[in-house]
Nucleic acid binder design. Structure first.
Lengths: 250, 250
DNA sequence: CGACTGGTTGAGTATGGTCAACTTCGGTGG
DNA sequence: CCACCGAAGTTGACCATACTCAACCAGTCG
């Protein structure tokens, strides 16, 4: 279930301050389950839950045909589809508080890889559903998370199918500022937990192209970067503009 | 709600044999609702349902913030995201029996366009959910359709992000053979209801590239084409092979 | 049968990929 | 605290895949 580090990954430990192994299950309960449903459902769910602690670079694989729900209690992860030996597609990034569904369809294998120290609570999908299916509020909450995932995936299709490299990068940064940015919306800061390779594999580009586009956006005064991962968005409107988020004029 | 034909579309009527305007709602009920749930839910759902008949080329738009469920009673449709004036991304194709969810997120507008004469039954999403949310079986069925849509969308991301033009076309044809093919699996035939432009807009390519790849696959004896839309898959295994559906070796 | 749309084929181009050198970051150890 | 080292990131030169522009062909409908 928990596979080793990815091939080209020398499991460099980034956990100097290893966090105490607090049980993440209560966090799952209060984040995902509506309060009235929690008392009845938490025990049976706990019975089928598996808690997994991953260090950055480690991966969580699912067996074929055994799809799972995964709650990210802390940390950050990428959901990766293996297209072939040297081709990976990052299908989605997920952060603390997210609940995602993973399956491996016939065409490709999928796995979840931690971008840093990450704690997961995972459930076999069918067992999970049979426990919560009778609870309308929980099913509705689940459903809404699914809708959000589908919407994000559709937007990613637009990006991958019809946008230039620069539009993809600009859109990516704007999205990340929205999802994990700190500070006000006018000058958000982001600490990107993913590498340039992860970004490239997410946007259907190469690391070189990602790097070049970062440089261009920097030159255009839209962003500032400090170190490998810190990005300051100087001009969010300008960034959104370059993302090609044109709405069709009616 | 029902907009006119798309810009470059001279609403050429393809309905010589106009089908009788049979009420498609019962078809929705028996296809989507589990039998035990139908009697209780059908009446309130009918009250909020809107039936729409579209000719090929006509589109169904949703207002912003008013997401809908759409059941395709007959025909075929493409779900399109408008990236900008001359850039459209086909996010998904849907056929008779499919139930889909459409929303227009902040970044882009979405619309559903009929590929031929098509009958829809549509519902405002929130009203739909409040009617069915208490019925576990229906919610589960809905949920599974959502999972399927998400899975397909993820697979599309892989295709758009990490596959060559030929791999995309081969994968597309294999998928279509599976979804709307007739005849045995060894020599399936497909009548593609979508134009080369639709295919191009779905795969993130141009019509010329689509055409060239069709020609190459034809030259490689993997497919035969008759007329604009009829495709005969001579070698499904070979096609799947060229689709780059490599599973990671364990 | 003729016109028109959609599809195919060809020639040249551009965006992003590849290959390679170099720089910076950041973590470790002297 | 600074020097060192490996990995990650950046930049440049060149190349390839798919796009653009354009002409031509074929299927379909009137």
């Amino acid at each position: 279930m928990i596979a080793g580090a990815l091939p080209a990954q020398t499991a460099r430990m980034t956990n100097r301050h290893r966090s105490p192994p607090r049980d993440p299950f209560p966090h799952f309960v209060e984040t995902v389950l509506p309060a009235p449903s929690a008392p009845a459902l938490a025990p049976p769910l706990r019975a089928i839950a598996q808690t997994v602690a991953l260090e950055g670079g480690q991966t969580f694989r699912i067996e074929r045909g055994a799809d799972r729900f995964v709650f990210i209690a802390s940390g950050a992860a990428k959901l990766v589809a293996l297209a072939s030996a040297r081709r990976e597609q990052v299908v989605a990034f997920h952060f603390a508080g997210d609940l995602l569904w993973i399956a491996s369809p016939p065409a490709h294998d999928y796995l979840l890889a931690a971008l840093a120290g990450t704690t997961l609570v995972t459930f076999p999908a069918t067992a999970f559903i049979s426990i919560v299916e009778s609870d309308a509020a929980v099913m509705k909450a689940l459903f809404e998370r699914m809708q959000q995932a589908l919407l994000r995936s559709r937007e990613k299709s637009v990006s991958l199918g019809r946008k230039t490299a620069q539009e993809r990068i600009a859109g990516f940064l704007a999205t990340m500022a929205d999802r994990i940015g700190t500070g006000d919306a006018l000058g958000p800061q982001v600490d990107l937990p993913m590498s340039r390779r992860d970004i490239a594999d997410s946007l259907g580009l190469t690391i070189e192209t990602v790097s070049r586009q970062f440089s261009e956006l920097r030159a255009a005064q839209l962003i500032e970067t400090h170190g490998r991962s810190h990005v300051r968005v100087c001009n969010l409107a300008g960034l959104a503009d370059r993302a090609g988020h044109a709405r069709a004029p009616l």
